[in-house]
Simulated assay, not measured.
Amino acid sequence: MAPAVGVGHRPLGMAASRLELNLVRLLCRCEAMAAEKRDPDEWRLEKYVGALEDMLQALKAQSSKPTSEVINEYSRKVEFLKGMLQAEKLTSSSEKALANQFLAPGRVPTTAKERVPATKTVHLQSRARYAGEMRSELLGKNISGEPELDVRKRMVSEPRPVDEKQSAAELDLVLQRHQDLQEKLAEEMLGLARSLKTNTLAAQTVIKKDNQTLSHSLKMADQNLEKLKTESERLEQHTQKSVNWLLWAMLIIVCFIFVSMILFIRIMPKLK
């Protein structure tokens, strides 16, 4: 059966490109390989995931690329496969389990015959496998199930029920430590959240006061500007009024001098 291109998000009447078809086929192949049990020296899946990244970048650069939801789903699945390969390279089972928890599998099946996304199935299988490995390590066994040297010594020196009880106690102690650590981290995160909330409220109060001060300053500046305009108009009117009075006074003085000169000439006798 051909893959359901666009994982259910492609609009009707919109055909898939050849590059997208190849990407979906290779993605289905990678999901199938990830679900199978592989040898530690298996290298093909890593090469296939690298090819998926190149094809995804080329698909994003195409002019007739699919919708953003389809691109995001492809990217989500490719990043999941890449993160799963990186988690498998870790040495400790606890580190693998922790890295596996942060992986985000695909939300939509890749092919039409899938009811549950293949990446989600792979995620659940890897989580169960890493949990089993952690339990085996905590019980004093390696991945292949062979007893370690110190466990052999305890088995020789002590009865088996005591050894099982001690292993169970050690497992409970480790789990309790992990739980205490998680509670401590949760308390620290809660304290940081409270501190951030307090700082945010304080900053909000300061900003509100600054806004009020700025508004008052703007209002005072507008009032001062209005007063300045009023005083300027009054000064201009006063200046114009003073100039008019001075002009009339000078005209009156000139006229008075002119009339006085004429009268002086008429009254005084002429020189012989």
Rank of each mutant, 00 (worst) to 15 (best):
A34I: 02
Q166W: 12
I253F: 09
R194L: 09
S17Q: 04
K197W: 01
V49G: 02
L98F: 10
A61V: 10
K141Q: 13
E53R: 02
Y130Q: 03
V5M: 06
L90M: 09
Q240I: 10
L98W: 10
A97M: 13
L21V: 06
R25E: 01
N224E: 11
A104E: 14
A99E: 07
S215Q: 15
A202L: 04
Q166I: 11
T119Q: 03
R76V: 04
L26K: 00
L149P: 10
A32W: 03
K141L: 14
M261A: 05
F256K: 08
G132R: 15
S232C: 05
I262H: 00
Q237K: 12
Q240A: 12
H178S: 11
R107M: 05
Q86M: 06
R160A: 15
R44M: 01
K120E: 04
S232L: 07
K120N: 00
S217M: 08
E236P: 00
S17T: 07
E233C: 07
D150E: 14
A87D: 00
Q86P: 00
T110A: 01
A58F: 05
E69G: 02
R177L: 13
T111P: 00
N244I: 08
P117S: 02
W245K: 13
A32S: 02
I257V: 05
R154W: 10
S215N: 11
F258L: 03
F102Q: 15
M134K: 12
V5K: 03
L98P: 07
S94Y: 11
F102R: 15
L247A: 06
I262N: 01
T230Q: 15
L190N: 08
G6L: 08
S68T: 13
K47W: 04
Y48T: 02
I262L: 03
M1E: 04
D163N: 15
P66Y: 03
S217I: 05
A249C: 13
D54M: 04
L225F: 11
S217K: 06
E42F: 07
A15D: 09
V151Y: 14
E114M: 00
Q182W: 09
D210I: 00
P159Y: 06
V259E: 07
H238M: 11
Y74Q: 01
A131Y: 12
R129T: 06
A128W: 14
A4Y: 14
M250G: 05
N199V: 04
V5H: 05
L149A: 13
I207Q: 05
L246T: 08
E146C: 08
V70I: 09
L263M: 08
E133V: 03
A221S: 04
P11H: 05
S217D: 05
E233S: 09
S136G: 14
T198F: 07
S63R: 14
Q182R: 11
L235K: 10
K37P: 02
R154I: 14
